[in-house]
């Protein structure tokens, strides 16, 4: 029986094994949640003179504490819903009906209200996302231009390449607080300092990947361009750029997830104003574990969405370039 299941077609794919592992993780999570929250719960019972309890009641209580050591999955899910989806509901109720445009303006008002409320995780995610995207864009442009320079100039190649690599062995996130504070002192505040940290983190994979990509055309292809008497810029735009595309997207996937990390860490030293990093920090100050975990899940979702967006663009671009699907 068991071996028959193991050999079935579903098990040969990826979906079922992944689902099984995920449900195993969930089970372990709940067991750990009960275990880790037990001491606190026992203390609560002792203080309130509850001497008898049933097992199911005990488990139920450990899984629904206010500030659990390890929040259960459903607590995190409820918190996530309350700070995202449910916001729309409450805002919808608050929005006025008296506008002339009726339903449309009400919807708009609801969206604005739900995504600007301080308690809304959408608001915090947006703050982080804007820094991520700005930093990623600057980082991509910088990385690609560096790569262009390095491919075309021997001096740049020899003198800068070792430093670009060395720059990443430096724990740049350590500099994050200083960049933020110093830029604040100069008068630059808001999204740009965080974005610069993302830039620093994301330019590297792009620069290295693109150097490799711009050099990936084979000699025979370069020779062909040479026989056409193609200029350097023609070789670049008609050959190098397109052969670098696969490298570009691979490194962009790494770069965008790392620039999200940069934006989150960049929010830590700003004194916990807004953003996912600020949520993490304030959660850790006030022992709000559920808040920490929901911010963490939001960050994970954001990373997954960003990476898959790059994947979508990649598929679109390669299809445009005539690759077989």
């Amino acid at each position: 029986m068991f071996s028959a299941i193991m050999k079935s077609k579903l098990m040969q794919g990826k979906t079922l094994p992944v689902l099984i592992i995920v449900s195993l993780i969930l089970i372990v999570w709940y067991v750990m949640a009960v275990r880790l929250n037990t001491p606190w719960q026992l203390g609560v019972y002792e203080r309130s003179d509850v001497t008898e309890w049933t097992t199911s009641q005990f488990i139920n209580d450990t899984l629904n504490q206010d500030r659990p050591v390890l929040p259960s999955v459903h607590q995190v899910a409820i918190e996530l819903w309350n700070t995202t989806g449910a916001k729309f509901g409450s805002c919808w109720g608050k929005a006025s009906d008296e506008q002339s445009l009726g339903i449309i303006s009400k919807t708009w008002e609801t969206i604005v209200c739900a995504s600007t409320s301080r308690r809304s995780l959408i608001y915090h995610a947006w703050i982080t996302l804007s820094a991520t995207l700005l930093g990623f864009t600057i980082g991509s442009v910088l990385g690609i231009s560096l790569a262009i320079g390095i491919v075309h100039s021997r001096a740049m190649d020899k003198s800068m390449m070792p430093w670009i690599i060395a720059s990443q062995t430096i724990p740049i996130l350590a500099i994050a607080p200083m960049i933020i504070v110093v830029l604040n002192a100069v008068g630059v505040s808001g999204v740009l300092p965080k974005a610069l940290i993302s830039t620093y983190l994301s330019f590297f994979p792009i620069a290295v990947g693109m150097v490799k990509g711009f050099r990936s055309p084979e000699t025979i292809q370069l020779d062909l361009m040479y026989t056409y008497a193609a200029s350097k810029s023609q070789v670049f735009w008609k050959l190098r750029w397109f052969s670098a595309m696969p490298y570009l997207f691979t490194s962009m996937k790494i770069a965008i997830s790392i620039s999200l990390v940069g934006a989150i860490v960049g929010e830590l030293p700003t004194g916990a104003v807004a953003g996912l990093g600020a949520r993490l920090l304030s959660g850790s100050y006030y022992g709000q574990t559920v808040q920490i975990w929901s911010a963490l899940f939001m960050a994970a979702a954001l990373a997954a969405i960003l990476v898959s967006l790059v994947g979508v663009v990649e598929r679109f671009a390669t299809a445009k370039m005539g690759a077989r699907a």
Partner: peptide, 17 residues
């Protein structure tokens, strides 16, 4: 999937634990 996530975020949790 996990290696693309911002894992530094677990820092506050670990500090708490």
């Amino acid at each position: 999937f996990v290696s693309a996530l911002p894992i530094v975020g677990v820092a506050p949790i670990m500090v708490m634990w």
